[in-house]
Design a protein around this nucleic acid. Sequence first.
RNA 1: GGAGAAGUCGCAUAGUGGCCUAGUGCGGCGGUUUGCUAAACCGUUGUACGAUUGAAAAGUCGUACCCAGGGUUCGAAUCCCUGCUUCUCCGCCA
Length: 417
Amino acid sequence: MLDIKFIRENQDKVKKAIKDKGLKFDVEKLIGLDADRRKLLMEAEVLKAEKNKVSKDGKPSPEVIGKMKPLSQKIGDLDKKVEEIDQKIGILMLDIPNIPHNSVPVGSPDANKMVREWGERPKFDFKPKNHIELGEKLDILDFPRSSKISGAGFCLFKGLGAKLERALINFMLDLHTKEHGYKEIFPPFLVNRVSMTATGQLPRLEQDMYRLKDDDLFLIPTAEVPVTNIHRDEVLDEAILPIYYTAYTACFRREAGSYGKDTKGLMRVHQFDKVELVKFVKPDASYDELESLLKNAEEVLKRLKLSYRVMALSTGDISFSASKCYDLEAWAPGIEKNLEVSSCSNFTDFQARRANIKYRQKGKKKLDYIHTLNGSGIAMARTVIAIIENFQQKDGSILIPEALRPYMDGSERITKE
RNA sequence: GGAGAAGUCGCAUAGUGGCCUAGUGCGGCGGUUUGCUAAACCGUUGUACGAUUGAAAAGUCGUACCCAGGGUUCGAAUCCCUGCUUCUCCGCCA
C-alpha cells in the first residue's frame, strides 16, 4: 500500500508505476474520493466539536436536548458517508502496486537483465536424463503414487530422496543461521485473512491460495507471510534493527490457471519446501540489504556447486508489492531449463504500511515505516531437480554435493537401494 | 466441544451514564541538586486522520481511539448484543 498523501502529490509517478507494471487503475477516481472524504470529514468534525462542548457542561436543559437531537442525527449521517468513502478508498488502495526503483529495467518480462553468472554447466559424455526418469529409476521419487494419494502436482520422496530433502533444509538453515546472522523461525503453516492481506497476497491472489472455508484460514504460499506478520502492528526499537529471520516451511500453491504448464515432475507442484529469508530494516539501508540478501541466497547454490545466473527483473515481471527484484536461476541439464529457485525482493515500505510495522528514530518525534525484504534461500523442489540432473552419472546414480554429505550420514552417492 | 472469568495510555492499576479532553504508580525523556553513581525534587510523556503555519525539523487547532464491530441515549470506558483474544475448570487428543 502506498501513502494516500504521496498519491495525492505524486499522481504522475503512481500512474507510471501502474503502466510499467502492466496494470490498470483509475487514479483520478481515487483522488476524487479522497477530496470528497476530506470535505465531509471537516463538516462532521465541526459539528462534533459543538456537540462535545455541550456534553461537557453536565445535564442540559430540555430545550438544549431538543436541539442536540437533530445535530446528532446530522453527525451520524456524515459519519456514515465518510465511512462509505473510506471503505471504497481502502479497497482501491489495495490495488495500487508498489513503485519500481529507478534501477529496474522498464518493460515486459523480455526486458529482464542478466546481472551475473556463476559456475559452469556440467559436460556429459552421455545424453543426460531428466529428474523424473532418474528419480523413478532410483526409487527416490514416486509420481504415480503421489498422484494416487493426492492428485496431480504433488510429489512423494522416498528413501535417500526424502533424506536429500531433509538434508537440504538443514544445510540451508545452518548456513543462514551460523554464517549469515539470521535467526531461525518455525512459524504456523496456516494463517488468517488479516496476515494474508498484510503481505499483499490478498485480495488479489485469493484464487491462488488454498483456503479452509470453515475457519477462513489459508495454507501459506510462502514463509514470507507468517514471518513478516511476526511484527505486524508493532513499533520496533531502532536499536534492534536490522532483523534477519530465516524459516523453513512447506509452501502451498493452487497454481490455478497454470494447468498444462510444467505439469510433469517437480517443476511446478502444489506443495514444496522452502527456506525463506526475511529482513526488517531501516529505510535508507534497504537496497544494500537486498544485495546482501541476494548474496546469502547465492551462497547456497555456490556451496552446492550448482551453476546459476542472477536476473534483474523488469517492471513487467516484478511482483505487485516489490520495488526491485532479483531471480536466481539454476541450470537443469535434463529438462534443459533455467529453473527459478529464488526470488529476492525489496518491498520498501509497501508491506510495512499494510502490516503497520514502524520504528522510532532517536531524536525524532514521528514514527516511520520500516522496510521489508525477503527472498528464497532457497526453494527445495527445483533445487532437487538441479542436483539430480547436474550430478547424474552414466550409471544413473547421483553424486551428492559435498556440502550435503554431513547431513546424509556421509553418503557420497545416491544409488538404487 | 462444554462451563466460567477477564480484556483501560509502554507496564501495573483506578474508574458502575455528564465533573474522563481517562486518575494514580512504575518506566521513558528533559531538568535541579551532586566529585561520580544512586536517591530526592520539578517538568514532560501515545497513535491516526483533518485543518493551518513552516524550506524542513516541528508547532498550533480540531476530531477519533478505553480488544473489535453493532445498538440504546441529548450524552457511553461505563448499559445491551455479536465477534475475537487470554486465563481457569471439565471433556477429547499427538
